[in-house]
Computed example of a mutant assay.
Amino acid sequence: MPATVDRRVRLFAWLSFLSEVLIIGTGGAVRLTGSGLGCPTWPTCTPESLVPTPEMGIHGVIEFGNRTMTGLVGILAVLVLVLIWRFRRQRRDLFVLACIVLGGVVAQAVIGGITVWTGLNPFIVGFHYVASLLLVCVTAAFLVFAYEPAGPRVRTVQRGFAALAHATSAALALTIVFGVITTGAGPHSGDADAGRNGFNAELLEHVHAWPSYALFALTVALVIASYRTRFGGRRWVVALLAIELVQIGVGLYQARNGLPALSVGAHMVLAALTAAAMTVVLLRMKRREPLEQTAVA
């Protein structure tokens, strides 16, 4: 039985992860350039054409480009599943995650279609982003497991550290949820005729900041605790803090400069990277016990 999967699985798993992050960036570009209805129908771009026509201009190109990215993400998900197939009995964890990613990509495409059909309903747009972010987390988890041997996972940290890490992840989840709701009330609707969610954007900016303050404080505490306890994944805790610092800088800049489109897009991608780093930190709280070692015990 192989201790770990081969390099090809890891390579395409990395490509799958990067493509999931990239599609968040391209999806953000669609909305932030007002190209949300650049292709007014789905799954075709227009009722008569699969691809954008010259009359549709740059908005059609941008929207269709994001749809093309969905195809790339799907192909990579299929390749990962095909490569992991022969390990499916020894590495059921990886096989299940690969299936989740492929199913998630299909669901992601369908949600994208519903987004177009509903004229960029802000709640559907927000749900579409959250679904994409969850796929980033799942592909990050796949990468963590792909570098581990087969065997049961055993917790290696004290309960206090685990509780602090889970509290940090809860603060992150709240920050993202309120960030999505705030965006749905803001000026970047994806199309001039698209509606907003009706909430007070200025008030939501403050509400969104509250869990982000808690997230930063908890992450600092987590960094300190990781060094005191010699946590094996402390470099990922430091990476989490570093991404948050950049995210805070971008957030302050966009709030003080009228939400420039580029900074909003960067904020979206950084949120996905923060969630991925948090996923790795949580998973690093356990380690694998190789099956051979377990059998001897």
Rank of each mutant, 00 (worst) to 15 (best):
F127C: 13
V180K: 03
L172Q: 08
V207S: 06
V246Q: 05
L143S: 05
P2V: 10
R67Y: 00
G113D: 01
R228D: 04
R256Q: 15
G119K: 01
S19L: 07
T115R: 11
F95V: 08
T41Q: 03
E63R: 01
C137Y: 04
I62K: 05
A171K: 06
I111D: 04
L282E: 06
V157H: 05
A239Q: 07
Y147G: 15
I24Y: 00
W85E: 10
G103Q: 10
I23S: 00
S226L: 09
T26K: 03
L50N: 02
D6G: 12
A272Q: 07
M69S: 05
R31Q: 07
A141S: 10
H267G: 05
V280M: 14
F127D: 10
I114G: 04
I84A: 08
G126A: 08
E292W: 14
W85D: 12
P211I: 11
T4Y: 05
V51D: 03
V296R: 15
C45H: 00
I181A: 11
M1P: 01
P47K: 06
A239Y: 10
A140G: 09
V269R: 10
T168S: 14
V246T: 13
S19T: 12
A192W: 10
E202R: 13
A167Q: 08
W117R: 14
V223I: 09
D6Y: 02
L37T: 01
A192V: 15
A163K: 13
T33S: 14
Q247A: 15
V130E: 10
L241Y: 07
Y253G: 09
I100M: 15
P2Y: 11
E48K: 06
H206Q: 14
T118G: 06
I24F: 04
V110D: 06
G184D: 02
V9K: 01
F199H: 14
Y253L: 14
T53H: 05
T274E: 11
G27T: 00
P47M: 06
D191P: 07
H188L: 02
R155F: 10
K286G: 11
L11E: 06
C45K: 00
A201Y: 13
N66T: 01
A173F: 14
T53M: 12
G251I: 12
A3N: 13
G251A: 08
M268R: 04
A255N: 12
A173M: 11
A185L: 07
A13D: 00
F12N: 02
A131C: 09
G198T: 10
R234E: 09
S16Q: 13
P290N: 04
W42E: 06
